[in-house]
Write a protein that binds this DNA or RNA. Structure first.
Lengths: 213, 213
DNA sequence: CAACATACCTACCGGTAGGTATGTATGTCA
DNA sequence: TGACATACATACCTACCGGTAGGTATGTTG
């Protein structure tokens, strides 16, 4: 028999460390996060923490692989599967998470993925490899979705899927960046709405003479 | 008589510290930058450096006020003065600095202003105040330029200046963020071109049936 | 129960971070 | 020429960082 005791459950402990580390890294950056604090918050000693992760870096990589990556897929990419109106889906998803992050107050810490990418990409090859792969996945998924939109006539055929995908992802970096740098919900909201306006210009039905915000 | 000697010129020394600090902070982030290294690179001892700046923070604020701020104005805002075609000017300026940063290799370190804003805004009020003011200035200048463009019929009157300005600035954060996180010139170029495409959709002459990239 | 593995703790390491107290060299001005 | 401020150097302090050595407690398995 196994897993009888709640404590001394290795898998759960490991997971808890990763979740705590995610929070600390999200709030303070990777370099700014302290393994002492992470251990303390987890209710573990530093020795125990290093029983699970060979180094602070290894813990960081695990946070990317086992927390941030899956979160990206679940939040942003899953909704696109089985969507026959990609513009509508992207628009809705964006609006939703802007709203959620403002409501929770998380927006002041920006986007976990972007934070790590900005901080660590030039400093650490392993981080860069992982984070870059995630962003490539994101852009590819958007491009593919837009391509489908063109096929089914919901998107203008004068739109370049790859180019539009690059801009949408960049704009999302910028929206969360705006929230973080301004620490102001209204400015973030404005940037989010502006992206939605742009998304509407991609629709097959778009007319430049239409309503303005 | 003053300023006879090249060394022991306080103003020049101070400036040199700021420039060195800018480089270190640009490459390593504020928290990652070491005052030991900055002092060493300046050819100064740590004691001497702290003769000019009361703390590492104070040095950081000086870098924003006396280096990054002026750089922003000179690079991005000055070209807009006396421009009667804001779209063309923003487009040209963006293309120019994407090209320059790729050529110099600086793009792998991202945008100095954005780096600091992302890293320090949630952690330090003084940084936040300064950096947020700079971004507000930036957005306001763009909004004003677009408003002028609408007046002189170079920009569609269905465009919301404030909204478009928010998106353009956010997209620029994202373009440099893309370069930094991908460490790849081509991906950054793609994002830059995509922003240019978007800018063209703001023109009064824009037709959705036009050429695609 | 014995043998062993895994989970976790205590105490400590070397290194470096930002910061400071104090001394000295240099230029200015009365 | 001598008093004084400023520019800089030397030496050192404290706090904390990531990381480890060595032990103990709690299983699991035969």
């Amino acid at each position: 028999m196994k897993l009888l005791s709640k404590s001394r459950d290795a898998e759960a402990t490991r997971r808890k460390v990763i979740e705590t580390a995610f929070g600390e890294i999200y709030r303070n950056g990777f370099q700014g996060a302290s393994v002492n604090t992470i251990a303390e918050e987890t209710g573990l000693t530093k020795g125990a923490l290093f029983h699970y992760f060979a180094s602070k870096q290894a813990l960081g990589y695990a946070v990317v692989d086992e927390y941030i990556g899956p979160l990206l897929l679940q939040r942003w990419l899953d909704p696109l599967r089985d969507s026959d109106d990609p513009i509508r889906t992207i628009r809705k998803t964006c609006k939703r998470y802007v709203k959620e992050d403002i409501a929770s107050g998380h927006f002041v810490f920006g986007c976990p993925l972007n934070n790590l990418a900005q901080e660590m990409s030039p400093l650490d090859k392993e981080f860069h490899k992982r984070l870059n792969t995630l962003y490539d996945t994101w852009r590819s998924a958007y491009a593919e979705a837009i391509r489908n939109g063109i096929k089914n006539r919901t998107v203008r055929d004068t739109v370049s899927p790859k180019s539009a995908a690059a801009l949408i992802v960049a704009a999302q970096m910028g929206i969360w960046g705006t929230g973080k740098s301004s620490q102001d919900a209204e400015r973030m909201q404005q940037a989010g709405d502006a992206l939605c306006d742009y998304l509407d210009t991609l629709r097959a039905s778009f007319k430049p003479t239409g309503a303005k915000r």
